[in-house]
Amino acid sequence: MGEELLVVEDLITAFETDRGLVRAVDHVGFSVRKGRTLGIVGESGCGKSVTAMSMIRLLPQPAGQILQGSVKFKGEDLTQASAKRMRKIRGNEIGVIFQEPMTALNPVHRIGKQLMECFFLHQRISKKKAWEQSVEMLRLVKIPSPEVRMGDYPHQLSGGMRQRVVIAMALACRPDLVIADEPTTALDVTVQAQILDLLKKLQAEMGMAVIMITHDLGVIAENCDDVAVMYAGRIVERAPVKELFANPLHAYTRGLLASIPRLETPTKSVLPTIPGMVASLVDLVPGCRFCQRMDRKGSTLRERPGFFEVSEGHWVEVCPKCYHSEEVGNE
């Protein structure tokens, strides 16, 4: 086990709205060790991307605010770092693979100019050296004819190629940590597999840590060492990936796993789904938010369940109605 590279503790992120200050991330905490991959999984609107943007201080301004908590990267609390310091960290020590490559890339600038900018911002090198290193990064991410692609605009590349360019930009300065926010969104399954395999190989070569944000539990199972399950702004379960898949304890985690199609599933059968949907941020209860989704009544809606380590490395929000040990079983 490597040493802890990133430690997030008691993080609260909120947004100013017409209906007041609403929390999108509510007392979230986790850690990432060097060379390890943490997967953050959950439905849309559960706070995964907001957590990532909070860590690197890229929240929409002036609405987004970090109200509480710390984000310690190599011992330095990023919530207290100056804007100038954060500009040095982002892209240099922490790389980000953004969710949609077409919006992450500037449509009016050539690929080469955008990639070279990464080196100009963080390293004192000549234009020739930046060009050479940019070409090498494109070659590293398996883009054919990289010298030619340097002169292309984003719209001239396929979705998979654009995603590879975004990965090249994130890894250009050899960061210690990479945040991959839905790195395979809108890609077909073949290209998805290629992108994820590429990330694993580059991680092994560079020794970096990865935080992978995704909806896809299959991606989590294949590529992550640890997993945190988020629901309605909170982490409801956190464990090593093998332990979580073998012994899911929270009702929400079980619901997510049950919805995965399996080979033994009969043809044309209806897949299990989790009823309801994630409540709006302004309507969230202070207690168990999965109980709120299930229309349950009582004290579980008023009092937040404790978050406990029920076995080594396996943490879960212990709501009386949502926590299921082997002895209790499913309701």
Rank of each mutant, 00 (worst) to 15 (best):
G29Y: 12
A258L: 05
L271P: 12
Y153M: 03
S70K: 12
V166S: 11
Y323A: 00
L115Q: 03
R296Y: 12
E100V: 10
K72I: 05
P175V: 02
S280C: 02
E303H: 15
L5H: 12
E182P: 10
S44C: 10
F245I: 01
L284K: 13
S325W: 14
E16I: 01
I235N: 04
L281E: 07
V166M: 05
G2H: 07
H122K: 04
N223R: 01
L202A: 02
C173G: 07
L271H: 03
E132M: 05
M230F: 15
A14Q: 13
N247T: 08
R139P: 08
L11K: 08
D226W: 07
Q114S: 04
G287M: 11
L256M: 14
Q80P: 07
Q203D: 06
S49K: 07
A279T: 01
Q61K: 13
E205N: 06
S126D: 01
D197N: 15
R149C: 06
F30G: 03
Q68K: 13
I12Y: 15
K268D: 11
T190M: 12
W131P: 00
K72C: 14
G20K: 09
D26N: 10
G159T: 03
M137C: 04
I274R: 08
T265I: 00
M208Q: 13
F73H: 13
M161Q: 15
G2V: 00
L271Q: 12
G69V: 06
S44A: 10
E309M: 04
T300F: 05
I274L: 10
E331K: 10
P144G: 04
F15T: 00
M150S: 01
S259V: 00
R23S: 06
S325M: 11
I111D: 03
Q192A: 07
L281T: 10
T253W: 10
C319R: 03
A251Q: 11
V41T: 02
L249P: 07
L271W: 08
D188S: 01
C319F: 05
R33C: 04
F308M: 02
A81R: 13
M53P: 09
V282Y: 13
K142N: 12
I195G: 03
A81V: 14
D283K: 15
T185G: 01
V219S: 01
D10P: 03
S126G: 13
V96C: 05
I56N: 12
R238P: 02
Y252Q: 01
Q133P: 09
S269L: 02
I213Q: 04
V28A: 06
Q292I: 00
I125G: 06
S158C: 06
E243K: 15
L263W: 05
R262H: 09
A258Y: 05
L59F: 15
